[in-house]
């Protein structure tokens, strides 16, 4: 009797685990941001360009889902970590790019009985973006409408006039 129950339970759990489906998606919408600095940005002869310029507060919008559905246990919110780095196309080291999170809505409609509810933490203050990947924010499960704002500092007419461009790369990691 005991053996039979154990085997039955094992089968159920095995089936559940075989049926476990993990979804890990990150979408990034919105447009590239290219700030044009021309004569209209100089307030008076002799003045410099604004040293600090910012994009729209929702220049890019990220949606994240990192969940696991297990047949009899429901849908669990898994912990994720978002890192950010840049890969320079044409850049000048005097220009410092930074990014911050200006929004983000956890979706707690998940039937979550295994882990924490969906959530998002950190990233609300500007963080400089370097060529080394660093954590921007962490969270659990499904978070939508994560709005991202960029900032450049170090803009100046003392820099050679040119098009400076860099690729901002976001990576989503399991944060177990």
């Amino acid at each position: 009797m005991m053996v039979r129950e154990f085997v039955s339970l094992a089968l159920v759990f095995s089936f559940s685990c075989v049926s476990a489906q993990t979804i890990s998606t990150m979408t990034l919408s919105g447009t590239d941001w290219m700030s044009v600095q021309d004569v209209s940005q100089v307030s008076d002869a002799g003045n410099d360009l604004s040293n600090v310029i910012e994009s729209a507060t929702n220049q890019n919008i990220m949606d994240i889902r990192y969940t696991t559905s297990i047949l009899i246990l429901g849908i669990g919110a898994n912990p994720f970590r978002i890192e950010v780095r840049k890969s320079d196309i044409n850049w000048n080291g005097s220009i410092i790019p930074a990014v911050r999170r200006t929004g983000g809505t956890p979706d707690n409609s998940l039937l979550d009985i295994l882990s924490n509810p969906s959530s998002i933490t950190g990233g609300v203050n500007y963080q400089n973006i370097t060529n080394i990947s660093t954590t921007l924010f962490t969270g659990y499960g499904k978070v939508d409408n994560i709005t991202l704002q960029y900032r450049f500092s170090g803009i100046s007419l003392a820099l050679p006039a040119d098009d400076y461009e860099t690729e901002i790369i976001y990576t989503m990691w399991d944060n177990e």
């Binding site: 993990t22 990150m26 447009t31 007419l157 098009d163 690729e167 399991d174």
Partner: peptide, 25 residues
């Protein structure tokens, strides 16, 4: 199965264009 994995990556470009400027007074 879920631990320490790179799950997905996305990117956007950002930049600044400094144009021709000549203003004097």
């Amino acid at each position: 199965n879920l631990s320490a994995q790179l799950l997905v990556s996305q990117s956007k470009n950002i930049g600044v264009s400094i144009g021709d400027i000549a203003i004097m007074d």
